[in-house]
Structures are given as structure tokens and as C-alpha cells.
Amino acid sequence: MKDHLLSRAVPLAKHLLVFAALIAFWEAAAAIGLIDVILLPEPHQIAASIWDLYVENRTIYRHFFITLYEALGGFLVGGALGLALAVGSSLNDSFRRYVSPYAILLNVTPGLALTPIVIAWFGFGYSSKIALGAIVCFFPVFVNTLIALTRSDAETLEMFRSMGASERQIFWKLRVPSALPMIFAGFKIAITTALVGAVVAEFSQATAGIGVLMQRLSFSLDMSAAIAALLSMSLLGLILFTLIELLDDRIVFWRRAARMDAVSRKRRARWTGEREKQSGKPQGRRRST
């Protein structure tokens, strides 16, 4: 056990050492004037600003959760649309043929150019940020799902047909499960894209959110706080990404050995539990009679 802890602690210590060295280098570079501290403040100033934003004044939380809400909302809406349209396209050839060119066109048009239109339709509230997030994160989900659903292993497909499976059964028992890993890969791209969409919309029009906070801070000449806000954006991105990864781990468990073991243990426990219940029943009856 001690060995195990040690084997984890040593790399961590090394990472921290590298990090500390980088910070020290940055401080030194700023001290001798290699870095323009007006634009890129020293680490200790940034650290102070982080303390201020998170602990002292706690200004960040409100903006943080607003942006989180917008990004998640955008992801859910865009993801749902992408899934639905991809499923529709996978089931219907002509639907795919005549709809996908417009999907591609939407994809190659920089979403930013659409901001004014989106704001016009959805107003000044959160919904316009969610909408822009949804538009930009729609495509990764759509493409990945469509490709994954239309590519199934030919032999497995024949196996299903030979068992007399209906198209519906093939869809649910074969196509969907085997498409899941790729769908999740799409989700992973989409979630960070949705965040970008929300932040971009905030930049151009918003009353609150990390994008707004960042603009406000940098405009009041507080660059260290602005960078702290930028780092909060990274944190937000990490949280969202990890969220999807956790889901991926849970749902597409068969791709990771450790998860597979856990699920396998759980299923065995359930199986033995049910067996005990079944064998317990007559016992109980006997007792009652």
C-alpha cells in the first residue's frame, strides 16, 4: 500500500516541481523586463486576483454558473438536434441526401457571423447564448452519429438478420450500442465547442457571464483579474469535458478495462443476488406455512 502511494506521489511531486520552475521562470522574466507586465501580469498578481475572485469578493461564481448554464444548455439542445437529425438521416437515404448539404454549409460558415441573427431571434437573454452554442455544437454530434450509425460490421449485421431480428431490433441492439463510442467522441468535441459559442455570444452581447466579466475586468485595467477570469474559462472547459468523459466511462464501459471489471462485478453480484432471492422464495414460503 505504501509502495502504491509512493508511486503516485513521486510523479506528482515532479509535476509540481516543473510547474514551480515554470512559474519562477515567468516571475524572473517579468522582473528583468522580458515580459510586458501590463499585458501579461506576474504569476503572483494572478494568484492574488484568483484569491480575490474566488474567496475574497466571490465575484466569479455568478458569472461562472451563468456561462456553465449557457454552455450546457447549448450542448443539450445542439446535441439533441444533432442526434435526432443524424438518426433521421441514417434511416432515410433521401433525407440524408437532401439535408446534409445544408448541414455542411452551416458547418463551414463561421458561427460568429451568425451572432447578430441569433440574438435577433432569441433576444438578449440566455436563450441567444444557448442558441449560438447549439448551432456551433450541432455538427460534431450530427456527423459522428451519422457515420457511426451507418457503419456497422457487415458480419454482425448478417448474424442479426440470420436470427430474424427486425430493423428496429437491429437499430437498438446493434447499431446504437456499436455507434456509442463514436457518438461520445462527437459529444466531447461538441461540449467545448458549445462553451466557445456561449462565450462568443457573451462577448458580443450579454449582461453577465465569464465572457462579460473578462471584458469588464480587462477594461478596468485589471489584467491579472482578466487572466484569472480566462483561467476560469479553462476550468469551465475542463469541468464540462470531464463530465462527458465520466458519462462516456459509464455508458461505453466496454472500452476501458477497469470500468469493464467494475461492471462485470456488479452484474455478477446482481445475478447471484437474484439467484438467492429465487432460492430464498420457497424457503420463505416454507417458513410461512
Binding site: 510586458d36 499585458l39 501579461l40 467545448t192 462553451l195 466557445v196 462565450v199 462568443v200 462577448f203 465572457g211 473578462m214 480587462s218 480566462l230 483561467l231 474559462m233 479553462s234 476550468l235 469551465l236 472547459g237 475542463l238 464540462l240 469535458f241
Partner: peptide, 16 residues
Amino acid sequence: LEATPRIAIGPVIIAA
């Protein structure tokens, strides 16, 4: 860095 919306870094780059 990957998790950070790159667009937000834009102004800093212009400044630099």
C-alpha cells in the same frame, strides 16, 4: 489550453 476557448485569448495576442 485545449479546454480554454481560444477566441478569448485573441485580444491578448493582439496586445502582444
